[in-house]
Amino acid sequence: MAKEKNIYLKLFLSTFYLSAFTFGGGYVIVPLMKKKFVEDLKWIDEKEMLDLVAIGQSAPGLIAVNTSILVGYQVAGIKGAMCSISGTVLPPLITITIVSFFYNILKENIFVNSALQGMQSGVAAVICYAVYKMAKDVLKEKRIEPVIIMIIAFVSAYFFKVNVALVIIIAALYGVVKK
Rank of each mutant, 00 (worst) to 15 (best):
I144Y: 13
Y158R: 13
D137E: 12
F159H: 14
Q120V: 15
G25K: 00
K10E: 15
A125S: 15
I151T: 03
M134T: 14
I169Y: 00
L32D: 01
L173S: 12
G25C: 10
Y129L: 15
K79I: 02
I170P: 02
Y132F: 15
K179W: 10
V126D: 01
A171I: 14
Y103H: 10
Q120P: 01
M150R: 06
S68N: 06
A135D: 04
N104R: 14
V131Q: 12
F101P: 03
E141I: 12
D51R: 04
G72Y: 01
K161Y: 09
Q74V: 08
F21M: 06
L166P: 02
S114L: 10
F159T: 09
T67P: 01
V28C: 02
T22K: 01
E4M: 11
K36N: 05
G72R: 13
A130T: 08
L11Y: 02
N6V: 11
N6E: 14
G175Q: 05
V155P: 04
E145R: 15
L18G: 00
N113L: 14
D51L: 00
F101E: 06
N104Q: 14
V89M: 09
F37I: 01
A157K: 07
K5P: 04
V65N: 05
K142C: 10
K42L: 05
E145W: 13
Q117Y: 09
M82H: 04
N113R: 15
A54I: 08
E141Q: 15
V167T: 05
V38H: 10
I85R: 13
G122S: 10
I152F: 06
P60M: 02
P31A: 05
T15Y: 03
T22D: 00
F111G: 07
R143D: 03
N66S: 07
A81K: 12
G175N: 07
F12Q: 01
Y17H: 08
L50T: 07
S14R: 00
K36A: 01
M49V: 04
V176H: 01
Y17Q: 07
I96F: 07
F21C: 05
S68R: 06
V65A: 05
V138I: 15
F111L: 13
K10Y: 02
G77V: 10
G61V: 13
K178S: 11
V28A: 06
A130H: 08
Q57W: 02
Y103V: 08
T15F: 10
G25S: 04
V89T: 13
I148H: 07
Q57I: 09
I98P: 00
I29T: 12
P92S: 08
A2W: 08
E108L: 13
Y129C: 14
M49W: 03
V53R: 06
I148Y: 03
M134Q: 12
N109Y: 09
I96L: 13
I69H: 01
G26K: 04
V38A: 04
E108Y: 11
P31L: 03
K179P: 06
F16P: 00
L41S: 00
D137S: 14
W43P: 02
T88G: 04
I96S: 09
V147R: 10
V162D: 00
F101Y: 10
V131F: 09
K34E: 05
M49L: 07
N113I: 11
E46H: 02
E145S: 10
S156Q: 10
L9P: 04
V71T: 07
A172L: 15
C83L: 08
G87P: 05
W43G: 03
E48W: 05
T88H: 09
G87R: 01
K140D: 12
